Amino acid sequence: MSRESDVEAQQSHGSSACSQPHGSVTQSQGSSSQSQGISSSSTSTMPNSSQSSHSSSGTLSSLETVSTQELYSIPEDQEPEDQEPEEPTPAPWARLWALQDGFANLECVNDNYWFGRDKSCEYCFDEPLLKRTDKYRTYSKKHFRIFREVGPKNSYIAYIEDHSGNGTFVNTELVGKGKRRPLNNNSEIALSLSRNKVFVFFDLTVDDQSVYPKALRDEYIMSKTLGSGACGEVKLAFERKTCKKVAIKIISKRKFAIGSAREADPALNVETEIEILKKLNHPCIIKIKNFFDAEDYYIVLELMEGGELFDKVVGNKRLKEATCKLYFYQMLLAVQYLHENGIIHRDLKPENVLLSSQEEDCLIKITDFGHSKILGETSLMRTLCGTPTYLAPEVLVSVGTAGYNRAVDCWSLGVILFICLSGYPPFSEHRTQVSLKDQITSGKYNFIPEVWAEVSEKALDLVKKLLVVDPKARFTTEEALRHPWLQDEDMKRKFQDLLSEENESTALPQVL
């Protein structure tokens, strides 16, 4: 008996699950189920560990084997000379395990699969056993689809999209007709009724959600790893209520002995410091949205989908001078704002400069500016000194954290500008005749005249004003913003236009 009217009423009120309206889709043409990776026989039982391990490696599972009696060998002398080797079968990115008779397991190899009674669906509900069930008529011709799209860092995100009359449910929550939600590992998919569980979705590319604290899981769906560094790992996640993407940084307390840091400095109150950081608001710094204190720290951040500045300059790639100017102007505005709010970044580098898009002209935002507030000064500097390429001379020669101030950030900005303009770092371990530390503390950077011949004198002058060993003589952010190279009204107008595109209400910060 159909429950279409009941569920449609529920759909009209929406769902609290991570779902959002989605535009129309072009329906895929039908194809045989076997060619799409559906096993030839149905099963109602969950797999054992041996079955799972075989399939996850990209080899055929026991459900897909063919009797050897149906095959015969071709003698080598009868092999056609022009026969080309077969292409290897792509490894599946996800697996659906059937929970009921009449449904088959599915190895997801393609990027898009339609499910329903219509014969054009890649996964067609046409098993005779299924057709005899009382629920068969409640399934729509095109009930739902599972697909994946390219996300940040060229990774993939799996989604389920509801197109049914009676509802598609993920972990008992209604997706909603015309809406989608991301699928995470071990999600249970039910059709027409929330208790009519048909599939379990296994994402073969992500970790299980159960490793994360419950308070975090209640608000966010964790997904793929976006990156990792000395101070922690960053994962893509989704807000459950809105389906908006965020980035979540995970900082290990054990790695940084944060408990010991608190004992050594009783004034170090991470929760208080995070609340201060959350109040920071500038178009060129990453917004801190939320914070969870569990076995590790979880910092929920605004997501930038254009990648890191590092990706644009790695491998001796240089940027156009006009692009360097647009990016560097924004970096200076961001660091100036942090300094005005009493925050020294201490870890400025291309990896911590994020881009809003893949376009050459785009907004940038500074991230990882609050680590000293979370990890403690000593722990952070011990970590950073392991990779000193961007560290100021006074940091390398000081004991502990004494003896330096916000000028350290201006040195790091000078190193970043040098790399963007030239395509190579000013200080490098590859210069074996002088140690990296000695290069930095003496201010002897690697200047290649033929490379810098293409760079304007004004740009080079600003680099020199920032890479000054004496912090008292080094340019401040205010002085850098007043430098002739940055007195470019076309560049500032472009920045204002980019801000307006992102948010019509965002105004250009005042600069002296």
Rank of each mutant, 00 (worst) to 15 (best):
E76F: 14
C18A: 10
K214W: 10
A9P: 06
I160T: 05
C121Y: 01
Q69I: 03
K253G: 07
A190T: 09
N186E: 03
E219C: 04
V198E: 07
G102D: 07
L106W: 12
A247H: 01
N186R: 01
Q69C: 01
Y156K: 05
K131L: 12
P75T: 13
C108Y: 03
T26Q: 06
I221P: 00
P85N: 13
E84M: 10
N171Q: 10
S49L: 14
G227F: 00
R254P: 01
F169A: 01
Q27N: 13
T272C: 10
A215K: 06
A158P: 04
S24Y: 09
I248E: 01
L204R: 02
Y212S: 00
T68E: 08
M46S: 13
R254Y: 12
Q29V: 06
F147T: 14
Q29K: 09
L106E: 07
R181E: 02
P21M: 07
E263H: 07
N105D: 07
R217F: 05
L129K: 04
L71T: 15
S53N: 06
Y139Q: 02
S50W: 02
K249E: 11
E263N: 03
P88M: 12
T65G: 04
E64D: 03
F201D: 06
S120K: 04
L226F: 15
D134I: 09
S19R: 05
K245S: 09
S260F: 15
D162I: 01
I160H: 00
I251D: 10
H54E: 14
V170N: 02
I250E: 03
F147V: 03
C243G: 14
S28A: 11
E81A: 06
Q78V: 05
Q209W: 14
K141Q: 05
G14M: 06
S194R: 07
P75N: 04
E76C: 07
S40P: 08
A267D: 05
Y159H: 04
V150T: 07
T26Y: 15
S73F: 13
L193F: 02
D218N: 15
V200A: 13
Q34I: 10
E8I: 12
C243Q: 07
T26D: 10
R148G: 10
A215V: 04
S140G: 02
P47G: 09
N112V: 08
K241E: 09
E161R: 04
S73C: 10
K244P: 03
L226N: 01
D218L: 08
A267V: 10
Q10L: 08
K235M: 11
D265S: 13
S32W: 11
G14L: 05
N185Q: 14
S16Q: 09
A257W: 04
E122F: 14
R180D: 00
T242L: 07
G30H: 04
A91T: 06
C231I: 09
A264C: 07
L226P: 00
